[in-house]
């Protein structure tokens, strides 16, 4: 009996020791890599904002150059709870003003984060990205795929009465307020729809849409 107890105590101590060893290794690695990982995440966010604002960036641009480009071309401001990134025009032929808005919401497995760029009317979508999510590879993860995102161009967030109206339908999307969903990823698509509805609601609340009927 005492032998058994001693065995158990030993096993518990061993497990604690191995756990502590693993935890130490992990903490060390996490501490060491944290600044680099955060810098990469910031750079990735900047690239995505520039992408939805249609500012072309060389994929090999270094982090420093990217920050300079970002600072010279994008102005960050907050309107209510919205994080807004305005494109500063570099030349006249770049077309009308564009704004990008940060969007965020729960997905199937974890949060989905992205950016939506809108035309002057704060309603017509120019471009959408979902750069950070944990959706199922091959199914829900296709929300960051080109084929899905391309559909959003020219669609509208709010319908004519000012209610959030953009829908992700299972098939046969038609018109200004419908986008084809992804098969096998119904929940993810519903969550994306919710995220866009939230954005539409906030835009209406901040009276950004009513300003330009």
């Amino acid at each position: 009996m005492t032998g058994n107890v001693r065995d158990s105590v030993y096993t518990v101590c061993y497990t604690l020791a191995v756990g502590a060893l693993c935890a130490t290794l992990l903490t060390g690695a996490a501490q060491f890599t944290a600044p680099y990982r955060e810098a990469n995440q910031r750079a990735d966010e900047m690239r995505n904002i520039l992408a939805v604002l249609k500012v072309s960036v060389d994929p090999r641009t270094s982090a420093g150059e990217l920050t300079r480009l970002f600072d010279s071309r994008v102005r960050h401001e907050s309107i209510g709870s919205l994080a807004v990134y305005r494109r500063l025009s570099a030349s006249a032929d770049e077309g009308p003003e564009l704004v990008a808005v940060k969007v965020e919401g729960p997905g199937l497995w974890g949060p989905i984060r992205g950016f939506v760029s809108l035309e002057r009317d704060w309603n017509t979508i120019r471009s959408v990205t979902f750069h950070d999510h944990q959706e199922t590879p091959g199914l829900g993860a296709e929300i960051s795929g080109e084929a899905f995102l391309r559909q959003f161009q020219g669609k509208r967030l709010l319908d004519d009465t000012g209610t959030p109206g953009l829908r992700i339908v299972s098939s046969g999307a038609a018109g200004t307020w419908e986008v084809d969903g992804l098969s096998g990823a119904t929940i993810t698509c519903d969550r994306v729809e919710d995220i866009l509805h939230d954005l539409a609601g906030q835009i209406r609340e901040e009276r950004l849409w009513e300003q330009r009927p």
Partner: peptide, 20 residues
């Protein structure tokens, strides 16, 4: 114990890939 040790090394290499 094996899985804990293996998971530790996997997370370490994953973090290094994310960083560099």
């Amino acid at each position: 114990a094996s899985v804990a040790v293996i998971a530790t090394f996997v997370i370490i290499i994953d973090q290094f890939l994310r960083a560099f």
